[in-house]
């Protein structure tokens, strides 16, 4: 089952569309509640990341009987130092973004904690592709 969602730069007001849709689907499939929570948190976090840092992008969601694969593909500045980005508390978010309650530097570490597989492809000045997988079993 495939679904796509657009990510618009700076549109925090509409963040959470993808995670809400995913949540409904997973509830219908009788996926364990704690697992749903983890997926929703990870996807929401990644979505907010893309809204905050990228110039736009697409979220691709693929669900089958065994797993969910979410790819967030953005056109943006890319991540220059991956190790730093994976460090808790590190953030490049602007003051404006922080004011809105985002940008605490918990994004990528938080995603990593909530998914089974996390794969990040990034190219400075081009964009980032975050792929996460959660197995249902």
């Amino acid at each position: 089952m495939h679904n796509e969602f657009k990510v618009v730069e700076g549109d925090f007001a509409n963040a959470g569309k993808a995670s809400s849709d995913i949540k409904k689907t997973l509830k219908q499939l009788n996926i364990d509640n704690q697992k749903i929570k983890k997926i929703v948190v990870a996807v929401y976090e990644a979505e907010v990341n893309a809204i905050a840092h990228a110039y736009g992008g697409t979220i691709y969601v693929d669900i089958d009987q065994d797993k969910i694969v979410v790819v967030i593909d953005d056109v943006g500045p890319g991540i220059p130092d991956m190790d730093k980005a994976m460090t808790k508390g590190f953030s490049t978010a602007s003051a404006k973004v922080r004011e809105m309650g985002f940008g605490a530097g918990m994004g990528l570490p938080n995603i990593k904690n909530n998914v089974d597989e996390l794969e990040i492809k990034t190219e400075v000045g081009v964009g980032t592709e975050v792929k996460m997988v959660v197995n249902f079993q």
Partner: peptide, 23 residues
């Protein structure tokens, strides 16, 4: 106890089939 009305079927493969059909 949870009494989910959302669950399409306890068996994930049947639920998945139904969900695909719904879409």
């Amino acid at each position: 106890m949870p009494r989910s009305m959302m669950v399409l079927d306890d068996d994930i493969s049947i639920a998945f089939e139904k969900l695909t059909k719904i879409k």
